[in-house]
Simulated scan of single mutants.
Amino acid sequence: MADAQATGPILRLQGVQTHIGPYHILHGVSFEVPRGGVTMLLGRNGAGKTTTLRTIMGLWQASAGTVTFDGTDITRHSTPAIAQAGIAYVPENMSVFSDLTVAENMRLAARTGAIDERRLDWVFRMFPALKTFWQQRAGVLSGGQKQMLSVARAIIEPRQLLIVDEPTKGLAPAIIQNMIHVFRELKQTEVSILLVEQNFHMAKSVGDTVAVMDDGRTVHTGTMAALAEDESLQQKLLGLSLAAHQ
Rank of each mutant, 00 (worst) to 15 (best):
G28N: 03
S95V: 14
G65Y: 04
Q145A: 14
A172H: 08
Q198H: 06
A6V: 11
A154W: 00
W134C: 04
V164A: 05
L227Q: 09
I175V: 13
I87S: 02
V96W: 04
W134G: 05
E190F: 10
Q61E: 11
M106Y: 12
F97G: 11
G48T: 07
Q61I: 12
I87G: 07
A4E: 13
M148L: 02
T189H: 09
P167Y: 00
R111N: 12
Q246H: 09
D3T: 15
G143R: 10
I115F: 13
G207C: 07
T55G: 10
A47H: 01
M94K: 15
A6G: 02
R217F: 00
V123E: 06
I156M: 05
T68C: 08
G36E: 00
A64L: 12
V206N: 05
L237S: 03
N178S: 11
E197P: 10
Q235N: 08
G21A: 13
R137P: 15
L100Q: 08
V16C: 10
V182D: 06
I74G: 04
Q147E: 07
F127E: 01
L162F: 02
L42Y: 01
A129N: 07
A109N: 10
G48N: 07
M126D: 08
A88T: 06
D116E: 09
A244E: 03
G216K: 00
K146M: 14
S150P: 07
L195W: 08
N199F: 11
S232C: 08
D70T: 06
H19L: 13
S142I: 13
V191K: 04
Q145Y: 08
R118S: 12
R111T: 15
G43I: 02
R217S: 06
A114T: 14
T189E: 12
I115D: 06
L162Y: 01
A225E: 14
A109S: 07
I74L: 03
Q17H: 14
L171Y: 02
T75S: 12
S142F: 08
